[in-house]
Computed example of a mutant assay.
Amino acid sequence: MNDKELIYWVDLTGPESIDEIVRLTIINTNNNVLFNHLFCPKVADYWDSDINGIEPEETYREKLFESYKTEIQKILSSANKLITFYASTFFLQKQGMDLSGIQICDVADCFRVTGGDTDTLDNLCTYYGYNLSTNIHERTGIECAKAINYCYHKMEEYSRAQGK
């Protein structure tokens, strides 16, 4: 496992026009948690919690993303590869994170079958045999990041076995 590869999970408020990060989790490939926080959004005060499992009232007492920018940037700058699932780096860059020189690997790009509602983290985990909680409200960012880590390495293993 490569210490320069980091896995991240990000939860957003929605709708897309004013999406803000409300949770960011970063782990290494050994599943050690490097960063895991909820944030109070600046603009959005309500969102559909059935999408990210986070109730708006859970974030009101949290600090803004910008309070952690230096810490997050230091962690991200230590990586040469960021691995995620359906998480655009746009929102990290929108917050001022410098991702130059870091390869971005979106596992969804490798898994995408139809480009529709079936391309979910849940279905990825089912396919690779990872036991991820089906209750979105009980799921943590750490659990999602660990699921991505597991599935990514299974994908890599299968790819090597196929000689790709």
Rank of each mutant, 00 (worst) to 15 (best):
L34G: 08
L24F: 03
T25K: 05
Y46F: 12
I54K: 05
N30Q: 11
N32F: 00
N52W: 07
E57V: 06
N36Y: 01
I26V: 13
L38R: 08
L24H: 09
N28S: 11
V43P: 06
S49Y: 15
L34S: 01
D50T: 13
N31R: 02
I27P: 11
K42P: 04
S49T: 14
N31E: 12
E66M: 14
F65I: 07
E58C: 08
N36C: 07
I26H: 10
I54R: 14
E57T: 07
I26N: 06
Y46S: 14
E62C: 10
A44P: 03
T25N: 08
E55I: 08
D50A: 15
P41T: 07
T29A: 10
E62V: 02
D48H: 13
D50L: 15
N52Y: 07
Y46H: 14
D45L: 04
F65N: 09
C40E: 11
L64I: 04
G53W: 06
C40K: 15
E66H: 12
D48S: 11
N32G: 02
N36Q: 11
L38N: 07
N32C: 07
L24A: 05
Y46P: 02
V43C: 08
I27C: 05
V43K: 13
I26W: 04
V43I: 13
N52Q: 08
I51W: 10
P56K: 05
E62T: 01
L34W: 01
T25E: 02
T59K: 02
I51K: 11
N32S: 04
N31W: 03
E55L: 13
Y60M: 11
E58W: 14
L34P: 07
Y60F: 15
L64M: 10
I26A: 11
I26S: 00
T59C: 15
P41F: 13
F65Q: 07
Y46M: 07
N32Y: 05
D48C: 12
A44W: 08
P41N: 02
C40Q: 14
N32R: 03
E57K: 10
N36W: 02
K63C: 03
V33D: 14
W47I: 05
W47H: 06
N32D: 14
N52R: 02
T59P: 01
P56G: 03
L38Q: 07
E66L: 13
N31F: 00
S49C: 14
I27F: 05
H37S: 08
I51V: 10
S49R: 05
E58S: 09
I51G: 04
E55Y: 14
W47D: 00
A44Q: 10
S49Q: 15
E55C: 10
I26K: 04
L24M: 12
V33C: 15
E66C: 11
T25G: 01
E57G: 03
P41D: 09
T29V: 06
V33R: 00
K42L: 10
E57A: 09
P56A: 02
N36E: 14
F35N: 09
Y60L: 13
I26T: 09
P41M: 08
F39N: 01
N28Y: 00
E55S: 13
K42Y: 06
C40A: 05
F35W: 09
L64Q: 12
V43R: 11
E62S: 02
I27G: 06
D45A: 04
G53A: 06
L38H: 08
V33Q: 07
I54P: 13
